[in-house]
């Protein structure tokens, strides 16, 4: 449902080529540091214009669309919440560009879904890192878009909490016709949560590979990265 056709991306002295098609489900993007995983997500999310090629979701060409108009919801590595707004207001921004959207019944629903029931009136600073991550997840959920991008949003949480959040994300966002695309530098994350894997290395994004099969018999680039 997400198709990258002859996509070429360029950033200061670094290029990435991608030509692949991803089905709905959970796909992990793995590869060495600096290899271009976040760059790939930026291109899908609309923060990097490609040099050439197309990005399509469910057959619709979104290459020229700005981030907010794409059928894509995004969680960044940090800065996912506005510190001066309450959780409910932050989540409400996923529905409309107004503070009043906080009162929409869907907001309370998604907050409960991620385990933050009753905390809607708090500001992010008064919550733990894990709770803030859940709030960001709640907003992605309420946006109800076919593609959700996660650029290592839980990496600051510590291994146990990160595992928990990934599992929650996969569970909550799971829906027919939805793709959850997550960048991770920890292959364990891919193994535990992802159905398929995209490998970004040596200037190319290749895949999707079925997770189990890939780790059972890794290609040379992946082998080097895994260090076996």
């Amino acid at each position: 449902m997400l198709t990258l056709t002859d996509l070429r991306l360029a950033r200061e002295g670094f290029t990435l080529a991608a030509d692949l098609s991803l089905p709905p489900g959970v796909t992990a993007v793995i590869g060495p540091s600096g290899g271009g995983k976040s760059t790939l997500l930026d291109a899908v999310g609309g923060f990097l214009a490609p040099v050439s090629g197309r990005v399509e979701v469910d057959g619709r060409d979104i290459t020229a669309l700005p981030p907010a108009e794409r059928p894509v919801a995004q969680l960044f590595q940090d800065g996912n919440l506005f510190p001066h707004l309450t959780l409910a207001e932050n989540v409400g921004l996923g529905i409309a560009a107004s503070r009043a959207a906080a009162r929409d019944p869907r907001v309370a629903q998604v907050l409960a879904r991620v385990g933050l029931e009753g905390l809607g009136d708090r500001r992010p600073a008064r919550l733990s890192g894990g709770q803030q991550s859940r709030a960001a997840l709640a907003r992605a959920l309420v946006q109800d878009r076919p593609v959700v991008l996660l650029d290592e949003p839980f990496s600051a949480l510590g291994p146990g909490l990160k595992q928990e959040m990934l599992a929650l994300a996969a569970e909550v966002l799971a829906a027919p016709g939805r793709l959850m695309l997550m960048v991770t530098h920890d292959p364990e994350d891919a193994r535990s949560v992802a159905d398929s894997v995209v490998l970004v290395a040596d200037g190319r994004a290749t895949g999707p590979f079925e997770t189990g099969a890939l780790f059972a018999d890794p290609p040379p680039a992946l082998r080097a990265y895994l260090g076996d």
Binding site: F47, P66, A68, F76, L81, F82, L93, S98, R99
Partner: peptide, 23 residues
């Protein structure tokens, strides 16, 4: 710090001013 999030949520013009910048 907040520009990317505001862009991703489609907050532009007066809405961006009101919701993000002025506060």
């Amino acid at each position: 710090r907040h520009g990317r999030l505001a862009d991703a949520l489609g907050l532009f013009g007066v809405a961006r001013l009101r919701l993000v910048l002025l506060p």
